[in-house]
Amino acid sequence: MLWLAATPIGNLGDASPRLREALASADAIAAEDTRHTAQLLRLLDIEARPELIALHDHNERDRADMIVQRAETEEILLVSDAGMPTVSDPGFRVVQLAAERGVTVSAIPGPSAVITALAVAGLPTDRFTFEGFLPRKAGDRARTLRDLATERRTLVFFEAPSRIADSLASLAEAFGPDRAAAVCRELTKLHEEVKRGPLAELATWAAEGVRGEIVLVVAGAPESVVSPESALAEVLERVAGGERMKDATRAVSEATGLSAKDLYSAALAAKDRR
Rank of each mutant, 00 (worst) to 15 (best):
R127V: 04
S167W: 11
L145A: 09
R196D: 13
L77P: 05
L4N: 05
V194A: 03
S224R: 02
E229S: 13
L155W: 09
T34H: 09
A6N: 04
R185C: 07
S230A: 11
E213V: 03
T256L: 05
G83H: 04
F92T: 03
A231L: 05
P228E: 11
L41E: 04
R61M: 14
D262R: 15
I164K: 08
P198R: 00
T73V: 11
W3C: 10
A181Q: 01
T154S: 01
R63L: 09
R49A: 12
D89W: 07
I164N: 10
L12A: 00
L40C: 08
G13N: 07
I67A: 05
G110T: 03
I76W: 07
T104R: 15
L148S: 02
A233Q: 15
V94C: 06
S16K: 02
G83K: 00
L44N: 05
V217F: 12
L187M: 12
A119I: 06
A142S: 10
G13H: 05
S227I: 00
L202T: 03
R244A: 10
R250H: 15
L190R: 03
E254M: 15
M66Y: 15
H36T: 15
L236A: 14
L268K: 12
Q39G: 14
S253R: 01
E51Y: 12
A26K: 05
I46E: 06
E208N: 08
P111C: 10
A269I: 04
G83T: 01
T34Y: 12
V194Y: 04
A248K: 06
S230Y: 12
F157L: 03
E32G: 11
A30M: 00
T37L: 03
A182S: 00
L134N: 06
T256V: 05
L148C: 09
P17A: 11
G212A: 05
P50M: 07
M245N: 07
P90S: 09
A240N: 15
A169L: 08
F92D: 12
Q96I: 03
E186F: 09
W3E: 13
L190W: 03
R136V: 07
E234N: 10
V105N: 09
R143M: 05
E223Y: 08
P222C: 00
A267K: 04
L216T: 03
A207L: 11
E213Q: 00
E32W: 10
A22E: 06
V94N: 09
G13K: 01
E74C: 07
A138S: 15
A48C: 12
D57E: 15
S170F: 08
T144W: 14
A117I: 08
P50C: 01
I9V: 02
G10P: 12
T256F: 13
E234C: 10
E159P: 07
V239N: 08
G242R: 11
T188L: 06
A138F: 11
S16V: 01
V87G: 02
H191W: 13
P124G: 00
A206W: 04
L2F: 10
I29Q: 01
A48R: 15
P8C: 02
A117D: 11
T129E: 13
L145W: 07
D45L: 05
Q69T: 13
E192G: 00
W3I: 14
L52Q: 03
D89G: 01
T154C: 06
V87P: 06
L52W: 09
F133E: 08
P109N: 04
L199I: 02
P17S: 08
G220Y: 01
A160L: 02
G242S: 07
R273N: 13
H191E: 11
K189L: 05
S16A: 02
